[in-house]
């Protein structure tokens, strides 16, 4: 069987400035991974190999660190990343109903991406806006005091905006 990781062809030249700055600085592995994810939107396998090679780590250690932290993704994400908070306050104020509304409307599981590649959905730990619970964040914009109806409106607005473009 052919190894899957050789099939990926990310543009590794984009990573070079990051490696030039951090590869030799001890303790920078997480910082490099964060920059890599900003560049590629996720962490492709060939990028992880390249980071391992340049930082003198084994690929297993790089993957070990990357998989430890929830921030890192190993699959491409949709254009809009929906992060629904399930901290205590949001949980008490009904985040489960918001999750159900999103999942039913977009037909997407927690951690999944819609078929059209527009939305990714992720249930996350506390976003720290507890007084506005339940809260979700879409591409860095926070929406608070949500009801299932409002969530659908927000999603429909995004869909309409995308359809118009």
């Amino acid at each position: 069987m052919q190894c899957e990781c050789t099939k990926q062809k990310s543009d590794l030249s984009l990573l070079e400035p990051v490696l030039a700055e951090y590869a030799a600085v001890p303790g920078s592995l997480i910082t490099i991974l964060q920059h890599a994810q900003e560049i590629y939107g996720y962490l492709p396998t060939d990028v992880l190999y390249r980071i391992a090679e340049c930082t003198g780590n084994s690929p297993a250690r790089v993957l070990g660190v990357a998989t430890f932290y929830t921030q890192f993704r190993f699959q491409p994400v949709g254009k809009y990343l929906i992060m629904l908070c399930d901290g205590t306050a949001c949980h008490v104020n009904g985040s489960a109903r918001i999750a159900a509304a999103v999942q039913e409307y977009l037909h997407v599981e927690n951690g999944g991406t819609t078929e059209d590649g527009l939305f990714s959905f992720s249930i996350v730990a506390c976003l720290g806006c507890c007084s506005l619970s339940p809260v979700m964040m879409i591409n860095g914009d926070t929406y608070g005091s949500l009801t299932p109806e409002q969530v659908l409106e927000i999603l429909k607005d995004i869909q309409a905006k995308e359809a118009a473009e």
Binding site: L29, I30, T31, L33
Partner: peptide
């Protein structure tokens, strides 16, 4: 910037994370 792990609030785990480890 942390990378999302609750245990890193524990001081020795935080130090490991600062050093680029799990």
């Amino acid at each position: 910037a942390g990378a999302g792990a609750f245990v890193c609030g524990e001081e020795t785990a935080l130090i490991e994370s600062l050093e680029g480890q799990r």
